[in-house]
């Protein structure tokens, strides 16, 4: 066991800081040359258990969680990941004590205000979008959130989708309701409603790419009504459950998950390319099948019986 003071002196040593910074730059630079997700989503779970384990107040746990989010957004920005979603507050969370709900609202508004500050040029980089059922949000909080949305709407480097007062089932219901209204107003033909049309009516704006990677912390292996429509196809999305509390989720762990994603994606693509290369030609069936008449003519048919 290494004593704490030695650990701290190693961590705070200028040489260690320099090395960490350069290693990080090297890793970010390398990751950027491979495939990276366009849209990463987070279920930031474990703030309260983190607080309990460390003997601190619940509000301090949420505070630590919000700091963790800022670090992750910073990392996403460096990696040029354009869309980030985070499950900030579920509709079910309104069941918590009014005191905790108020604290969560305060922390959220406070942390989102950070993106209006000049520090690190966030105010020029990050666009904030509030995704969820706004009719449940208290009026004073909603005004503040909409003001933040308005002030950041022209930023385009990173889009932070804050899922606030959100559940996926509510989003699906919202889409159904909106489609019915459009159908009544003859804006769409009922028979032509399909999955794409359905998705266009979500709380998410149309320009949002599919979720490539969903990360849930705290070890729970369930989705808790978050992006259930978006991540149910493993050909598009990858789900990662990791066993650390959100405030303990380190950037290095995030890089590892991105590396894993990038490796799997490249491997899958390579395998697909190889499967198309065959010394016998491409023998895979396309959707329309193979027409017998399209095949090249066979050699002449000759019978042993002569001309008969």
């Amino acid at each position: 066991m290494i004593p704490n003071f030695i650990k701290e002196s190693i961590i705070s040593n200028p040489v260690s800081i320099w090395m960490e910074q350069h290693l990080r730059d090297l890793f970010v630079g390398s990751l950027r040359t491979g495939q990276l997700p366009n849209h990463v989503a987070f279920i930031m779970d474990g703030n309260r258990r983190y607080a309990k384990n460390n003997g601190i107040e619940v509000s301090k746990g949420h505070e630590a969680g919000s700091k963790s989010l800022v670090h992750i957004i910073d990392a996403c920005n460096q990696l040029h990941i354009k869309h980030v979603s985070c499950y900030a507050f579920s509709i079910e969370n309104f069941n918590r004590s009014p005191q905790e709900v108020d604290t969560l609202f305060e922390i959220l508004v406070d942390k989102l205000n950070l993106f209006l500050d000049n520090e690190k040029d966030y105010n020029k980089l990050v666009q904030i979008r509030i995704i969820g059922n706004k009719s449940y949000i208290p009026r004073d909080t909603l005004i503040k959130l909409e003001e933040i949305e308005r002030l950041t709407q022209k930023n385009n480097d990173l889009i932070l989708n804050v899922n606030f007062s959100y559940t996926s089932r509510d989003e699906i219901t919202h889409s159904i309701s909106k489609i019915i209204d459009k159908s009544l107003n003859n804006e769409i033909i009922t028979k032509k409603i399909d999955i794409n049309e359905f998705q266009k009516n979500f709380y998410y704006p149309e320009d949002t790419p599919p979720v490539d990677l969903l990360i849930r912390t705290s070890g729970h292996t369930r989705l808790s009504d978050y992006l259930i429509w978006q991540v149910n196809d493993d050909q598009i999305s990858t789900i990662e459950f990791i066993n650390v509390y959100w405030p303990d989720f380190k950037i290095l762990q995030f890089y590892y998950l991105l590396l894993k994603w990038s490796y799997n994606k490249s491997w899958k693509q390579t395998r697909e390319e190889w499967s198309n290369i065959s010394i016998f030609g491409n023998n895979t069936l396309n959707e329309s099948g193979i027409n017998l008449k399209d095949l090249p003519n066979p050699p002449p048919l000759v019978s042993i019986l002569g001309k008969k």
């Binding site: 559940t167 089932r169 019915i180 159908s183 009544l184 009922t190 409603i193 399909d194 359905f198």
Partner: peptide, 23 residues
């Protein structure tokens, strides 16, 4: 999606309204 189509048809026949659509 099929359910949505059915509900949209019902709404056209005024048997249901979008306000009735709940989780």
């Amino acid at each position: 999606v099929e359910l949505t189509k059915t509900l949209a048809e019902l709404a056209k026949k005024k048997e249901i309204s979008s306000k009735n659509i709940t989780v």
